[in-house]
Amino acid sequence: MRKLGVMNTSALPAALAEIVDDFQALTEPERLQLLLEFSRGLPELPDRLMEHPEMMEQVVECQSPLFLTIETEQHDGGTPQSVRLFFKAPPEAPTTRGFAGVLHEGLDGLSPAEILAVPDDMPELLGLTRAITPLRMRGMTAMLGRIKRKVSALPQQS
């Protein structure tokens, strides 16, 4: 088993690595506050998804209702396709929203390959497991897993 705590974030995409570094630099109570800020920062869904909840999938491993979906954008000039992430979680589920906020800020707009390269146990790097409990951390791991499954199911890029 790998040792948790101070961990190398060089394998992560830049935005996600920065978030992980921010969490690791804090004390446990401060980490919870930071997670709360991420829960407040989770963007609202665009109208087209608000009006079509059936286009989103529920991540049932989360203790509170969490729905997500992905869309892709093709850039001009042969730049790689980027993946946009959309999450929906109720305000009375701030922990779940906070996890979604971290993943949104850390992964939104990246290429499929970059998202697929994120280690599955990345949520453990946030240093929240003791304060949040392993049970609640599973929801975030499941969210990341669902995103990666959906990305890997995308049509192959030419």
Partner: peptide, 22 residues
């Protein structure tokens, strides 16, 4: 609460948080 951050989103004035799990 079930969710460990609900208290932080706003609570009864003077109320103290207790987390069942930790």
């Amino acid at each position: 609460d079930e969710d460990v951050l609900v208290y932080e989103t706003g609570h009864i004035p003077g109320a103290v948080k207790i987390d069942w799990h930790t």
